[in-house]
C-alpha cells in the first residue's frame, strides 16, 4: 500500500490514494513511454545500430534503456541544492524523498550525476558517450555478440578521438567515462531489484 513513487520519471512522487493500480500505471506510462521511444529513436541514429539483427537491437535496448535514461536525465539530480526534479517540473529535497522511501539507489544516482556533470562534456561528447552506453549494455540475450562488440569498439574509438581532440590536456576524461560503464551497470542492477520488489495493487 505504498503511497509514494520516488522515481523522478513520475510527474510527482505523491500518489492519489483514490487512484486504482491501473490508473497509477497509466499515468506513469504517459511519462515513461515517450522517454523510451526517444531512446529508440536515438539508437536508430547510432551509425551501425540498424545493421544489427532486429533481435539484437531489441535485446540491447531492453538491457540498456535504463542506463541511457540515467545519463539523459542526470541533470534531474541536482547535487548543489540536493534536490530531485520530477518530470512534472517540481523539485523535491533528498530528505523529503528519503522520508517517502528513497534509499541507496537515490544516493548512488546523485553520486553518478555529480561525477558525470563534473566532466563537463559538450552535447556531441555526451551523445557519443550515450551511444557507447547503449551498445555496452548486458549481452546475455544477444545472438551475434561479435557484431555488437565490433560496433562497441568502433564507437569507443570514436569517443576516444573526440575527447582527445576536444580535451588535449585532460587524457583522464576518457578513462573516467569508461569507468562510468560499470557504475551504470550497478545502478541498473539496483534499479532492477527495486522494480522486481515493486507492486501496484489494483
Amino acid at each position: 500500500n505504498r503511497m509514494h513513487l520516488v522515481c523522478p520519471m513520475n510527474m510527482s512522487p505523491h500518489v492519489d490514494p483514490h487512484k486504482s493500480g491501473h490508473g497509477i500505471w497509466e499515468e506513469f506510462s504517459h511519462s515513461f513511454t515517450p522517454a523510451v521511444r526517444e531512446v529508440v529513436e536515438f539508437a536508430k541514429r547510432i551509425p551501425g545500430f540498424r545493421e544489427l539483427s532486429q533481435h539484437d537491437q531489441v535485446s540491447l535496448l531492453k538491457a540498456g534503456t535504463f542506463e541511457v535514461l540515467v545519463v539523459r536525465f542526470a541533470s534531474l539530480f541536482e547535487v548543489k541544492d540536493r534536490t530531485v526534479t520530477f518530470l512534472g517540473g517540481k523539485k523535491y529535497s533528498v530528505e523529503a524523498l528519503r522520508a517517502m522511501g528513497a534509499g541507496d539507489l537515490q544516493n548512488s544516482m546523485f553520486d553518478f550525476s555529480e561525477k558525470l556533470t563534473g566532466l563537463g562534456l559538450n552535447e556531441e561528447e555526451m551523445s557519443l558517450f550515450t551511444a557507447v552506453v547503449l551498445v555496452s549494455a548486458d549481452r546475455s540475450g544477444i545472438e551475434n555478440a561479435n557484431s555488437v562488440e565490433a560496433l562497441q569498439e568502433t564507437l569507443i574509438r570514436a569517443l576516444r578521438s573526440l575527447i582527445t581532440k576536444n580535451h588535449p590536456n585532460e587524457s583522464a576524461i576518457f578513462t573516467k567515462l569508461l569507468l562510468k560503464l560499470p557504475d551504470l551497470r550497478s545502478l541498473n542492477n539496483m534499479h532492477s531489484e527495486q522494480l522486481l520488489a515493486f507492486k501496484v495493487h489494483p
Binding site: S29, V58, T65, L195, L196
Partner: peptide
C-alpha cells in the same frame, strides 16, 4: 515478473518504436 523489463512493458514499447520506422521506410 521475473524480468524487470517485462514489468514495465518495455519490450512492447521498443518493438513498436523500432517497427514503426520499418513501416515508414519508402519502397
Amino acid at each position: 515478473f521475473s524480468d524487470p523489463a517485462s514489468n514495465l512493458g518495455l519490450e512492447d514499447i521498443i518493438r513498436k518504436a523500432l517497427m514503426g520506422n520499418l513501416e515508414e521506410r519508402p519502397e
